[in-house]
Simulated scan of single mutants.
Amino acid sequence: MGLFDKLKGILGSENQPDAAAPADGQDLLGKIAAYKRKTWMPLVEEGAEDEALASKIGGMAYLPPGETYPLCAHCQEPLTLFLQLNPANLPPNCDLDLEPDKLVQLFYCTNQHPHCELECKAWAPFAKSELARTLPLPATEVALPGTAPERQYPARLITEWVENEDYPDWHEMQLGAAGLSEQEVEALESNENTIPKAADKLGGWPYWVQGVEYPACPDCGLQMQMIFQLDSDHHLPYMFGDAGVAHLHQCRLHKGVLAFGWSSY
């Protein structure tokens, strides 16, 4: 059953003899239709041998020849790879307009002595204890270094993407001038699938814990788009604050500008 059918049931339209939704229910279906996006949930393989150029959560990062493992600018200890995305093995119908020849990498400092997350306010985009970047893909297959730096998580290779429909929460729809009524907001909040999905996902709408918090590109000032969401203790064995949700954003114009941030309950 799709989202529209679920919402019809919540609004009481499924019991109508002519199967027609009441006016306010039909209005809601029309209002949210324009916000529908595709999102892709990763299926991961645990215990697999790490691969340098794989799309993965955790593991070791591919590094260009001669580059040492990235260090935290605060404590000077190795950063932890949270995410690596290779455009060659993303969904073929992915509409995020990622650069086809660039790898996306997200590093984060998990050191607690000092507690870089707290001292650097790493929940905010562009914190000095994290690194989000793109870098050119090598022309040939490469191998990983033999020894992993401290505080790296086991690799969870992304082997498949499951496509779903995704919608923003009502706060974001209201910012988009959807004009939802109180009853319509209640119907959206009653949806068992949640709008949007709170899970690891590629694309779609961010699941905002505290409120709508898109970062702005420091180069052009435009609102950045979310390219990946990381949920606490989902595939990544890390909790953002108190069961928080994190987002990796990218500027649509300046593809090399990425921002990472999170919020929690």
Rank of each mutant, 00 (worst) to 15 (best):
T80E: 04
K255R: 15
Q26T: 02
G25I: 05
Q229M: 11
A73K: 15
Y108T: 00
G66F: 11
A148K: 06
V104Q: 00
N191A: 12
L81Y: 01
G2H: 12
Q152T: 07
Y153D: 10
A177N: 13
T140Y: 06
E14T: 15
L135V: 04
Y207M: 06
A54D: 02
K197G: 05
A148D: 04
P64W: 05
E49A: 14
G9C: 11
G2Y: 05
Y167V: 00
P22T: 12
V185G: 02
E184L: 04
A127Q: 02
P125Y: 03
A187H: 11
Y214S: 07
P114H: 12
Q16I: 06
K36M: 08
L7M: 04
A19L: 14
D231R: 13
A243L: 13
E213N: 15
K197W: 09
E130G: 09
C94T: 08
L83C: 07
E45C: 08
K201E: 03
Y207P: 01
A122S: 15
T194A: 11
C217L: 10
L236F: 08
K201S: 03
A198W: 06
I32G: 03
L11Q: 10
S263R: 12
A20P: 00
P218H: 07
Y69Q: 07
C251N: 06
H113E: 15
T159I: 14
Y265C: 12
L11R: 10
C75S: 13
I158H: 07
T80H: 01
Y265M: 13
H115R: 11
C220Y: 09
D200T: 02
G261L: 06
F126V: 00
H234R: 11
E189T: 13
L106S: 01
G176K: 11
E182D: 12
M1R: 09
T194M: 11
T159K: 15
L83Y: 09
G30Y: 05
A127C: 13
K36H: 07
